[in-house]
Structure formats: C-alpha cells, structure tokens
Design a protein around this nucleic acid. Structure first.
Lengths: 116, 116
DNA sequence: GGCCTTACGCAACCACTGGTTGCGCTTCGA
DNA sequence: TCGAAGCGCAACCAGTGGTTGCGTAAGGCC
C-alpha cells in the first residue's frame, strides 16, 4: 500500500523551509523585495554570518538567488521555486486533512450504526 | 510593518513535522491506525531506537499519544493536534501564495502600463 | 515453573547543522 | 588616501538525528 503523497515531497526543499529562521528570511525578502545578509540580520535575532549560511542553503535549493552588486550581494526570492514549495506544503497538508476527515467519517458511521 | 502570519506559527509543532522521518511516521500511523516503535521501524530505513526518539518528540508536542500495553507501547495520532499542524501549513502556504500573487499582479500592471 | 524470544529503555558515540566569535580582504566614500 | 562597511572563511560550541550495545520486563511455550 502506498503511503500517499509523501513520496512526491522534495525533502531538500521542505527542510529548507522547515527552519524557522529561513522562513522568517523568506518572509522578509518577500515583503521588501530584496536584501543582503547584513540588512536581513539587522531585522532578526541572529548574526550576519548565520544569515549568510542560511542564504547559502536557500540559494542551493533555488528558493533565492543572489547577485553581487559592488561590495554587497543582494538576494531575492525565486518566485517559481517558492511556488513549488508552497505547493508541497498544501499537498502534504491536504493529504493529512483528507485522512483525518476519513477517520472522522468512519468514526461517525460507527457511532450512527451503534445507535441504530 | 508586520511580517504576517509567521508570528502565529508554533515553531515546536512545525519543526516536529519538519523532519522527513517523522512525517513518514505520522503517515504510517494515519494509514494503519496505530503502531509501535518496532512495527514502524520495520517499514522504514531507520532503527527502532531512532523511531523511538522520534516518537518521543512527537509525543512531547502532542502529535501522538502512546499507551503501554503489556510489553509493548502502542502509539496513535492525536487528530486534533495534527489538524492544528495542518492548519499552520496551510496558513504559511497561503500567506506566501498571496504575496506571490500580489507580486505577480504588480508585475503585470507595470507590464500593462508600459505597453499602453 | 523454567526458558527463550520479543519489545522496550538507557547510554555512549558519531556526523551534521544552526549558531557564535574572530579575522582578513575588497569596495565605497569623505 | 584611509577609515568604514560589507562579505567570506575558519574555528569552535550545542543540539539533534542516527547508530550500536546492553540491561531488563513481559509473553509464549515446553
């Protein structure tokens, strides 16, 4: 028996957005359009180096792209890839939701049968 | 400016479902109704001890509850808590989705303005 | 009852990762 | 020209996902 949609999930991508700091960074980048390790770290409770590392992993999985601009490196979200990530979230979410609903329905059926 | 829904996200809960192994375990438990560390580990590429540790963290965040039954300990998913987790997934997903749509709309508007 | 098997829990250990500090190098601007 | 700003690299630390090894309690079978 298949265990469902989980096989379709890209663990690399998922674990990239699994980290709360990286989620926050993506959010900031979405709101502000772009940013650097320095500007992001100023709005978060971690150091620039930590942010830089996270930008590295986000870059590796393609959620973000950085372009050097003089002495700074500006990053912006890759819309298509983030859309893919969002699709995976909703995919797993709706799969679990469906199972929960099915369980609930079965439980109600049993209840009804018993009270007949 | 608020950065949106991310403040409402329970990092404990999210990181619990952030691990691919734990996601797989939840899926198996949903499909089979219940299971023990041993039965789960037989269907996964990790050892019983690893599964037991994961069951521990799932239990701590309330996604799963274990009841001792003789020499074994059977775990089952807590529907309500998993529903909460699913809600968070869809919450973050739809927030990002909305931002992506807004960006796209703005981009199209600029495009249209320019081609006028 | 005695004994082998099964299932669990605990502890030690290893690799990886998120985080820090420190340092050196390039680029900007006064 | 020279100080400040920004980045990258390296070392280090804590936490965690994973393993192996071992001890112990519960079941089943003779």
């Amino acid at each position: 028996m298949s265990t469902g949609v989980l096989e379709q999930v890209d663990d690399e991508l998922w674990s990239a957005i699994g980290d709360p700091t990286r989620r926050r960074m993506l959010d900031l980048l979405l709101v502000e359009g772009d940013g650097t390790a320095t500007t992001l770290s100023q709005q978060m409770p971690v150091t620039r180096q930590a942010v830089a590392k996270h930008l590295g992993v986000l870059d590796r999985v393609g959620l973000v792209r950085g372009t050097p601009a003089g002495r700074e490196k500006r990053y912006r979200v890759d819309d298509a890839q983030l859309a893919r990530a969002v699709a995976q979230l909703s995919s797993v979410g709706s799969a679990w939701d469906a199972r929960l609903r099915r369980i609930k329905r079965i439980a109600e059926t049993i209840q009804r049968t018993r009270t007949d």
